[in-house]
Structures are given as structure tokens and as C-alpha cells.
């Protein structure tokens, strides 16, 4: 057939761009992370300093706190989204008028820019102008001030993430539930299984692949949440919502200590890769192997 050269020529621009803006930055950040480099410091030149930056990273209390709050955020947000998304998908599995209309509305948050989601929720929860603190204090006498209470700020970011991303889980779950064959369910009903048994022994194993794929995607996205939180709380109060991405944006990037900032970036990238890889190996790969 036609020459392979043409294929490589067609592929070349893509590979070049991804190399220049994907691979080179990766190598470069690892390279810089082993250097002392602060252009505005006493010595503006790059000096190789072994692993000194990493020596600082592992004792950086602020950074470790940001890892902890990120883990808490990811755990609460993703768990709630999966449970809520599944419940909503089940509620969608009946016949009722206007199904596609409701589905359309439900998809809407997914296309919104994260920064707009942050802005929308800021307008909702800022004490002076927001509707939520107002209603809470009028109806329940509850004081919501995300600028001051660390717990409230944390919960608000989780709720915001739930609002933004639960539809994704719902829609993937609907897709999975719709594609289930009816036979096993009818058989189970004839055999007298109750709804809980059907859920644990038939539905759950059958939609497991879809759940795992959704979990994987949501975990990856939740770990790198930045824009919304930056807009809503700016990482505050204190370090309550300073998730790793926000930490890099607010505390690491503005400082000109490039060597140390690179070391933090490398550690974050390392943790992301390890978590994704463990998820993939532990949850998704065994299923594929079992299949083939």
C-alpha cells in the first residue's frame, strides 16, 4: 500500500506539539527540582544541590496539610457523587413524562467552566449577598460564613463539587443501567429475591465496570480541582480548602524559588501517577484480564 512515511508526516505535528509542551516540561521540572534556583535571590544562577529541595518538601508542614485536605475532599466528594449519582440514575429508570427534558437540564452543569461554577457558588454563599446564608439564618438561625469557619468552607467546596459533577455519574450510571439485560432480574424475581439481594448480587456486579470507570475519572478530576475552589474560598480560611493545586497556584508559583517549586510539582505529579496507577492495576486491569 502507500508509504509509511506519509503516516509519520501526518502524525509529526501532533507528536512535536505534545513533545514540546508535554514531555519537555516534565523532564525540565525534574531537572530544575534538583537545583537551587532563585533568580531574585542572593545567587540568581542555577546550582545543583542534590536532593536538598526534596529534603525540604518532606518537612513542609503547609504542603503536607494541603495533601491531607485534598485527600479528605476527594474522599467525601467522590463518595457522595457515586452514591447520589447511582440513586438518581435508579430514579430515572421509570417511565414518566418529560424524561429527556429533565436529562438535558441535569447535563447542564457539566459544560460550565469550573471557574464559573466557583463564581456562581461564591455569589450564592457570600454572607452579605448570598441567598444561602440568608435563608439559613432566617429559617434555622444557622450562621454560614465560609470566610471564617474552616469546616463550613470545606463542606461548601464539597457541595459545590457534588453539584458540578454528580450529573456525570448519573448519566454514566443511566447508560450502564439501560444496557442491562432484563433476564437475570426477571429470574431473580421469580426466585423470590428481595430488592436488596437483587442490588448486591445482580445489579452491582453487572454495572461494576461502569462504576469503576466513573470512579477512576472522577478521582483523577477531583485530585486536580483548582479553579472552583480558588474562586470560592481562595484556599482559605487558613489552609482548610487549600488543595494541592490551589497550594501550587497560591503559595508555590508566586514565589520565585523555582527549584523548590519544581520539587513540589514533581511530588504532586508522582502522587497523582501512583494513585491512578494503583487504581488502574488494582481495580480496572484484573477485570480485563478475567475477561480475556
Amino acid at each position: 500500500m502507500h508509504s509509511k512515511t506519509l503516516g509519520w508526516i501526518l502524525l509529526a505535528p501532533t507528536l512535536l506539539i505534545l513533545f514540546l509542551f508535554g514531555v519537555v516540561p516534565f523532564i525540565y521540572v525534574v531537572f530544575v527540582s534538583f537545583h537551587q534556583w532563585n533568580p531574585f535571590g542572593a545567587n540568581p544562577n542555577m546550582v545543583f544541590n542534590w536532593a536538598n529541595n526534596y529534603r525540604r518538601v518532606v518537612f513542609d508542614a503547609q504542603f503536607i496539610t494541603s495533601l491531607q485536605v485534598t485527600a479528605a475532599f476527594v474522599f467525601f466528594a467522590v463518595t457522595s457523587q457515586l452514591i447520589l449519582g447511582y440513586a438518581l440514575a435508579q430514579a430515572f429508570m421509570r417511565d414518566f413524562p418529560g424524561k429527556s427534558f429533565f436529562r438535558t437540564i441535569h447535563t447542564l452543569p457539566l459544560i460550565m467552566a469550573p471557574i464559573i461554577v466557583g463564581s456562581v457558588w461564591k455569589l450564592m454563599t457570600t454572607p452579605s449577598i448570598g441567598i444561602i446564608p440568608n435563608l439559613l439564618s432566617n429559617w434555622f438561625g444557622y450562621d454560614l460564613n465560609i470566610g471564617q469557619s474552616a469546616t463550613q468552607a470545606f463542606i461548601t467546596t464539597v457541595v459545590m463539587d457534588i453539584w458540578h459533577w454528580t450529573p456525570l455519574v448519573t448519566l454514566t450510571m443511566i447508560a450502564a443501567l439501560v444496557s442491562l439485560p432484563p433476564d437475570p432480574f426477571e429470574q431473580a424475581q421469580i426466585d423470590g429475591a428481595n430488592r436488596r439481594q437483587i442490588f448486591w448480587h445482580i445489579t452491582l456486579p453487572m454495572i461494576r465496570p461502569a462504576i469503576l470507570a466513573t470512579l477512576f475519572i472522577r478521582l483523577m478530576d477531583a485530585m486536580r480541582t483548582v479553579d472552583e475552589v480558588l474562586m470560592l474560598t481562595g484556599g482559605g480560611p487558613g489552609s482548610a480548602t487549600r488543595y494541592v493545586g490551589v497550594h501550587i497556584f497560591k503559595e508555590v508559583f508566586p514565589r520565585t524559588n523555582y527549584g523548590y517549586g519544581s520539587a513540589i510539582s514533581v511530588v504532586v505529579l508522582y502522587l497523582t501517577i501512583v494513585v491512578c496507577w494503583l487504581m488502574y492495576v488494582g481495580l480496572i486491569a484484573p477485570r480485563n484480564k478475567g475477561k480475556g
Binding site: A51, Y54, V57, V58, V267, I273, W277
Partner: peptide
């Protein structure tokens, strides 16, 4: 890949 991952994990643990 696994070796590099373990190396980094061990190094960070060691430094700390």
C-alpha cells in the same frame, strides 16, 4: 516503572 515508583517512595520516606 514499578522500580522507579518504589525508589521515589523509599527516598521520600528515607528523607523524612
Amino acid at each position: 516503572f514499578i522500580s522507579v515508583v518504589l525508589w521515589v517512595a523509599l527516598s521520600l520516606f528515607w528523607l523524612r
